[in-house]
Amino acid sequence: SSRTRFTDYQLRVLQDFFDTNAYPKDDEIEQLSTVLNLPTRVIVVWFQNARQKARK
Rank of each mutant, 00 (worst) to 15 (best):
N21L: 02
V44D: 10
D8I: 02
T20A: 14
T34Q: 08
Q48P: 00
D16S: 13
R5G: 09
D27T: 05
R41L: 10
L36V: 13
D27E: 03
L36A: 09
D26H: 11
Y23W: 10
L11Q: 01
S2L: 08
A50M: 07
R3K: 15
R12T: 10
V45H: 05
N37Q: 08
T7H: 02
V42R: 06
K53S: 10
Q52A: 03
E30K: 08
K25T: 05
F17H: 14
K25C: 09
P24F: 01
R55F: 03
D8G: 06
A50E: 09
T34K: 13
K25A: 06
T34P: 04
A22E: 11
L14F: 03
V13E: 03
V35Q: 12
E28M: 02
D27Y: 07
R51W: 07
T4K: 02
S33F: 00
K53Q: 08
Q31N: 03
D26A: 12
L36C: 12
Q52R: 03
D26V: 11
K53D: 14
F6A: 02
Y23R: 13
R51D: 04
E30I: 06
S2D: 15
T34W: 06
V35S: 13
V13C: 07
K53Y: 06
Y23F: 09
K56P: 13
V42W: 11
V42M: 05
R3A: 15
R12H: 07
L38H: 04
L32R: 01
R3W: 15
L32V: 06
S33A: 04
T20R: 14
T20E: 06
Y23I: 06
E28G: 06
T4C: 03
K53N: 11
D8Y: 02
Q31M: 06
N37F: 04
L38Q: 08
V42L: 08
P24G: 01
S1P: 02
A50Q: 09
A54R: 07
P24Q: 01
D26Y: 06
Q10M: 08
Y23K: 14
R12E: 07
R55H: 15
F17M: 12
T7Y: 02
T7P: 03
F17I: 08
K53E: 15
A22Y: 04
L38S: 05
R51V: 11
L36R: 01
T4M: 15
E28L: 04
Q52Y: 05
D8M: 08
N49H: 10
A50V: 11
I29Y: 12
D19F: 08
Q31E: 11
A22M: 14
L32Q: 01
N49Q: 04
Y9D: 08
F6E: 04
Y9N: 13
I43V: 09
Q10L: 01
N21T: 11
D8V: 05
T4E: 04
V45Y: 08
V42T: 13
D27L: 12
R51Y: 07
T4F: 07
I29F: 08
R3N: 15
V13H: 15
A54H: 11
D19L: 11
T34V: 08
P24C: 02
S1A: 14
F18H: 08
T4W: 03
R12F: 01
Q15R: 09
S2G: 12
P24N: 00
A54K: 06
V44M: 08
R55W: 05
N49D: 14
P24R: 02
D16R: 09
A22W: 07
V45C: 10
Q48L: 03
F6C: 09
Y9I: 04
N21W: 02
R12Q: 12
N37P: 01
Q10H: 09
P39Y: 01
V42G: 10
L32A: 02
T7Q: 05
Q48F: 02
Q52P: 11
F18R: 06
L11D: 14
R5Y: 15
K53A: 14
V44F: 10
N49E: 13
D19G: 11
V44E: 14
V35I: 06
I29E: 02
E30N: 07
Y23P: 04
L38V: 11
L38T: 12
P39E: 11
F17C: 06
Q52E: 14
R55M: 14
S1G: 15
A22G: 07
R41Y: 12
D16Q: 13
Q31C: 06
D26T: 10
F6Y: 08
S33I: 00
I43K: 00
Y9P: 10
A50T: 09
L32F: 06
Q48I: 05
N49K: 08
K56Q: 07
N37V: 10
K53T: 13
R55C: 09
D16P: 04
I29T: 05
Y9Q: 15
A50G: 08
T40S: 06
L38P: 00
V44N: 12
K56G: 11
F18M: 09
